[in-house]
Design a binder for these strands. Structure first.
Lengths: 226, 226
DNA sequence: CTTCGACAACCAACAGCCTCATGGCGTTCC
DNA sequence: GGAACGCCATGAGGCTGTTGGTTGTCGAAG
């Protein structure tokens, strides 16, 4: 999880970097608007923490430039300018959160965490598990007792829907909505096919009876991952 | 843009509903944890504003239930419990933002706006334009002087990258990173092919010379949409 | 000025995969 | 038995990305 901290005051910058690094982030630091825009555009960061006062301009300027250039990275403004008016201004200019100084370190961490959690990151691989089975969202791969295979995008979407609702029965309509979108127009049997594909692939790596049919209702994962 | 407001105090609830409706949101309101979870799971909302104190439990409970059930909707907690400790707790439980009472209406609007802006909504169709050309993100369609065609997912991703950086030159590496992801392993010539596809499709609907080549540098959209 | 080589870009063609519809078959329930 | 439901094989069609040949551009040498 990579973070860009933009803060010109050396003492605070060191503290911020140390704080985030203690919590497992990879942190880069900049001091100027120019560098911030340059590095922020690289798309390599999961979040940018941006101070308001910088030697070559203010943070809003960096914010504006990044957003106009299409930078999608979530940005948290961190500043002493902390009137509601300032907050509204920053948020409307494209900031995702706005925290006034002085701040509580835990709150900063929690807010950055919320932003990072919300943003589908390319660097963090979400992992869903169910018994012995593991589904990796980044590589779209499924592992069972050490054996691995890759899923196609529809297969993956279907398995993801089942895994995110383990212990629940999913109706055909619910599954179709999840995999093909809420207003999809596919034949009902397309779901049959992908259930079939998934079962075959799962069986190939030793996961027998991965998906159980509840006749007339829908499908669910095997209650025990075993 | 649809909002769910969960607040049991009638006076404040009315004010919140009125506030958001004045700013163009479609607002539903609930008073209980039970209803909030029920309605929140419908996936129909772009954001949920959740009060802490509710008659049948606290907001954290609703939050937890929604998140455990896989609800992806951004949630803003709105509460009188406003110690840093409370904020950290709420954020770590899955809230996306946390605003203490009393709050400034504009700030609430700005924060909800930031959440909604960040979340890819199914209800709002983003539209990018460049001169006479219009790219609709929802339908992945491209329109030029009234004539429309549909793009495949790669074609769309490429056109989107170009449109989001109009007036800029995009290098081959930048485009490949945008279309295939930052660490893609595709041959350079794949980009050639899709540039070719796009140009052909654009020409079909009358958009001549849509994409200009800058030899040795990269590609850009035709400076004037015309 | 012309020629040549290197290189970038363009484009056609193709193979492989993903997606999904069709339709036959088996199973379950009334 | 028959109807409804689910399972599975097959195949068409679209999307993707590679290969390889052609064209165009630039710079250096003749």
């Amino acid at each position: 999880m990579r973070l860009l901290v933009v803060e010109d005051e050396p003492q605070l910058r060191r503290e911020l970097v140390a704080l985030f690094e203690r919590h497992g982030y990879l942190v880069d630091a900049d001091e100027t608007v120019f560098d911030a825009v340059e590095h922020g555009m690289s798309m390599a960061y999961d979040c940018i923490v941006l101070d308001y006062m910088l030697p070559d301009g203010d943070g809003i300027e960096a914010l504006t430039q990044l957003r106009e250039a299409g930078c999608p990275t979530p940005i948290l403004m961190l500043t002493v300018k902390n009137d509601p008016k300032d907050r509204v201004f920053g948020l409307n200019k494209g900031a995702d959160d706005y925290l006034g100084k002085p701040f509580h370190p835990d709150e900063l961490l929690a807010r950055v965490g919320a932003l990072v959690r919300r943003t589908p990151s390319l660097s963090d691989e979400e992992v869903l598990t169910h018994g012995k089975a593991t589904l990796r969202t980044k590589s779209r791969s499924l592992e069972y007792e050490g054996r691995t295979l890759e899923l196609t995008s529809k297969e993956f979407a279907l398995m993801e829907a089942l895994m995110r609702h383990k212990h629940q029965l999913m109706t055909r309509d619910q599954l179709i909505a999840k995999v093909w979108g809420p207003d999809a127009e596919v034949a009902d049997s397309a779901l049959d096919t992908y259930i079939y594909f998934l079962r075959r692939k799962c069986a190939n790596i030793g996961w027998k009876n991965a998906i159980v049919t509840v006749r007339g209702r829908g499908y669910a994962l095997q209650p025990e991952g075993e």
